[in-house]
Amino acid sequence: MSRPTAVGGAAPATMRAVVVTRPGGPDALQIKDVPVPVRKPGWVRIQVKAFGVNESEVTTRKGESDAEVTYPRIPGIEGVGLVDEADEDSGLRPGQQVATMMGGMGRSFDGAYAQYVTVPAGQVIPFGTDLPWEVIGALPEMFQTAYGSLTRGLDLKAGQTLLIRGGTSTVGLSAATMAKDIGATVISTTRHAGRAGELRTMGVAHPVVDDGKIAEKIRDLAPQGVDAALELVGCTALPDTLGCVRVHGTACFTGALAGGWAIPDFTPFMIPSGVRLTSYAGEAADLPAAVFQQQLQGIAEGRLKVPVAKTYRGLEQVRDAQTDVESSTTPGKHVVLLDD
């Protein structure tokens, strides 16, 4: 059995965490003193420094998640921090900066809304950076989803044209800055004309106001159709999005911001002739450590931009963060920074 290593001696016996004991409103998020999680072999214990707040955690708090979620539960599908304890042969050292996300985190096992979290070693991404924790905390789920969609989902190349349907979402904003860095021309949608400037800031060449039917507008910009389309709005918008794609171009279904995860009475003939349709739903392993390190370097150099909506300090502000995520009034990622 691998011997454990730990940060500067034994961890405390208890920690502060946000616990959902029953589904409900923001008041269901209770701060409690709970035992520090015991690390299992093959897992890593992380001292959490920051975490992003996501729609899926709001869903968990409301009791609207699938049967995978049981209560009581510490939410949080992503987090960043320092390795506290790991197997000696894991390649992870105490005090090393790491990110983690998804893989059942905050759903089938306790997540990052806490001072410590334990996760399988396979969903831990090591890195090194001088960027502040509140910036790094915005990245894991958001950048992984955007990167996976653009690479595995769309195989986007320099010189191509990308349409992002749902452009002011955190993934949409991240995908825009990554696509521009790849060398693609980005067309991105928003329901509000006043947010066009925000899209341009993230590298969007052509913001488009989405009134539900955009194919004609997109064909004005790309008469043959776009090379690639990233669908984040949902199945209700997907048929129109497919109409924006050129023959032998690809549309990737990644999200459903407006709901609509299925098309009633679907037939393959709904897909325009010659257009390719795929999907992306990835995990931490889809974001290699070397790629994440490159992304951090790109942020430090100013090539990649991080859409942070607001930073909250301490677990006491988690309720405010979830309330703001639900309201959807401020585009970008909501990040909770933990006290040292």
Rank of each mutant, 00 (worst) to 15 (best):
Y113G: 00
T330G: 05
T329V: 11
A121F: 09
L173C: 09
L232Y: 01
R276L: 15
Y71I: 03
M202Q: 08
T311L: 07
R276E: 12
I271A: 02
V335R: 01
T254Y: 03
G106D: 01
I187N: 00
I218P: 05
R165M: 14
V275E: 00
E134S: 13
I218T: 07
E301G: 06
L232N: 05
A179H: 00
G255P: 00
V233C: 00
Y113R: 00
V171I: 14
Q160E: 15
P26C: 01
V209G: 04
V325T: 10
E68C: 14
G91F: 12
I31C: 04
L287S: 03
A290Q: 14
L131I: 00
V19P: 08
A321Q: 06
L29R: 03
A228E: 05
P4G: 07
V20P: 02
A196F: 13
D227Y: 06
K217Q: 15
G255Y: 00
L287D: 01
I218L: 10
P94Y: 07
S108H: 07
A86Q: 10
E316F: 07
S273R: 15
A121D: 14
S327L: 12
Q294L: 12
Y280N: 01
V48M: 05
P140H: 09
Q317I: 06
G260S: 05
Q294S: 13
A86I: 10
V124M: 03
G249L: 02
I214L: 08
Q96L: 04
D33Y: 14
G81K: 08
K213R: 15
P12Y: 12
E326S: 07
